[in-house]
Amino acid sequence: MLLSNLLEYMGIERNRLHMSWVSSAEATKFIDVVTEVTEAVRALGPNKYFIKDQAKVA
């Protein structure tokens, strides 16, 4: 929780980091969470702020 607060404090949108608790028997909950996480991140758009530029390898 402190991590996500600090991330947001530094300018990384809160919804980029998700945590959940899914039992190995909860396949349906797993799918729900995957969908939810995907939609939340899709709504935010691409992460541009915190990406390190990599040297382009030919």
């Binding site: 991590l3 990384i12 998700h18 959940s20 608790w21 969470v33 935010l44 992460n47 990406i51």
Partner: peptide
């Protein structure tokens, strides 16, 4: 989590 974001991930999901 930070490594993932730095290397271009749009989101990180941790699940137990």
């Amino acid at each position: 989590a930070l490594s993932a974001l730095r290397n271009g991930a749009d989101g990180v999901w941790v699940s137990g």
